[in-house]
């Protein structure tokens, strides 16, 4: 009895969380333009997406920014984790505190502050400023995904590799990296997901190049259109799939 009641409550919460998204997915296959009539099943809205050059352009921006930012964030973040572990307690904890900043500041403050700086130093707001902003919010996720794995490794192995004649680069590549690889991959997946999904920071740091979230935002302001449902559905499913993979690696709880 008690278990049933509790199950019902959790079911209601899940219904609240997922029914709007479910409705959106259903409507993206609705042949009727109207939201309150089912006009039969269609892929038309998805086909229409491929005919809109602004959306294809935004898809390219979204994917390429995510790939470039993820690669750089993974390199910088993994290096940071390796270095922090060897640091003295004070500088290490200072650097970790600074790393929490982009994660705790509201996105709007991060976006606005980066925009101010880019404009002040006369960098035009576009593709590359978006990339730099994404690296900034992605890197701490890599750092916090790699650190726990690093703590499980034996730091004497690194010293041993150096004693046996490795250069520090070789020691990292041959001794540390293989051990922390699961954390590095999780961090890369996380930062890729964050990049694909970002709206606010991209919105403030790029004028000329728009990503998919920015296209959805400007479309939503004009009113709802079924092809935007289709676009949202695709983004939702891609991000969902990525998150399930990341969660399988046991990382969502650790980093959130």
């Amino acid at each position: 009895m008690r278990k049933t009641l509790r199950g019902v409550y959790l079911g209601l919460i899940l219904f609240f969380l997922y029914s709007p998204i479910a409705v959106m997915i259903v409507l993206s296959f609705n042949a009727s333009r109207s939201r309150n009539k089912w006009g039969g099943f269609t892929f038309d809205w998805y086909v229409r997406l491929t005919q809109r050059s602004d959306i294809l352009q935004a898809l390219w921006v979204t994917l390429s920014v995510a790939v470039v930012a993820t690669i750089l964030a993974t390199i910088i973040g993994t290096g940071a984790a390796i270095g922090i572990q060897a640091m003295k307690k004070r500088p290490a904890s200072l650097l970790l505190k600074v790393s929490y900043l982009p994660m705790t500041m509201p996105d709007i403050v991060t976006g606005v502050s980066l925009m101010l700086m880019f404009v002040f130093v006369n960098v035009p707001l576009g593709y590359w400023t978006m990339v730099m902003a994404h690296i900034t919010f992605d890197t701490p996720y890599v750092l916090f995904a790699v650190l726990p794995k690093l703590r499980q490794t034996d730091s004497n192995l690194y010293e041993a590799a150096l004693d046996l004649g490795c250069t520090p680069m070789q020691a990292v590549r041959k001794v540390i990296l293989p051990e922390i690889m699961p954390g590095v991959i999780t961090g890369a997946l996380l930062s890729f997901t964050m990049s694909l999904d970002d709206f606010i920071i991209s919105y403030f740091t790029s004028y000329t190049d728009k990503n998919l979230s920015m296209v959805i935002y400007s479309a939503a302001r004009k009113g709802i259109e079924p092809s935007i449902y289709a676009l949202s559905t695709i983004m939702f499913l891609v991000v969902l799939a990525l998150l399930i993979v990341i969660n399988k690696r046991g990382a969502l709880e650790e980093v959130s």
């Binding site: 709007p20 998204i21 409705v23 959106m24 997901t193 999904d197 970002d198 709206f199 979230s213 959805i216 935002y217 939503a220 709802i224 935007i228 949202s232 983004m235 939702f236 991000v239 969902l240 998150l243 969502l252 959130s256």
Partner: peptide, 10 residues
């Protein structure tokens, strides 16, 4: 972890 814009749009 999901885009708040998508959820608000829904």
């Amino acid at each position: 972890w999901m885009n708040f814009l998508l959820r608000t749009y829904a």
